[in-house]
């Protein structure tokens, strides 16, 4: 089920051109740490949002799920973390339609599972 959820959308972990457009905002070699600062915000925010999402799902709070997933979608999307962005978008949509009974839990699991690889890939791209 988990694999199917990822395979359905199959976006890359990281959208390189998008991440590059953000990297280009920084100084050469990220001398002022601008891009690293953004990555750190993501590394702090994404796990926190996923924890809050788990609680909101447990509580069947669809409005909260929608809001938190929307926030996660935004923060992932800004750095080009495509797979997490798309999964968060699907969760947001389920929250909006108050359909938390079905695949919502699996999507959150897929999000959690894709986070370490996303983090690794973002750092690798950052250093490249």
């Amino acid at each position: 089920m988990k694999l199917a959820l990822v395979r359905d959308a199959e976006p890359p972990l990281v959208d390189r051109p998008r991440l590059k457009s953000i990297k280009d905002l920084g100084l050469p070699g990220d001398a002022d740490g601008f891009v690293k600062g953004l990555l750190d915000i993501f590394f702090e925010r994404a796990p926190a949002l996923m924890n809050d999402l788990a609680q909101a799902l447990d509580g069947r709070d669809s409005h909260k799920v929608e809001k938190l997933a929307h926030a996660l979608k935004g923060t992932a999307g800004n750095l080009g973390a495509s797979r997490m962005m798309h999964l968060a978008e699907r969760l947001e949509s389920l929250g909006r339609s108050r359909s938390l009974e079905g695949e919502a839990v699996q999507i959150l699991e897929a999000l959690k599972a894709s986070y370490p690889d996303t983090r690794h890939e973002l750092l690798r791209e950052y250093k490249s």
């Binding site: 953000i22 993501f42 925010r45 923060t75 800004n78």
Partner: peptide, 14 residues
């Protein structure tokens, strides 16, 4: 915006 990343990206972009 509740995401400080957005503040920073807008500041740099503009």
């Amino acid at each position: 915006d509740d995401d400080v990343m957005v503040h920073q990206i807008i500041e740099r972009s503009t």
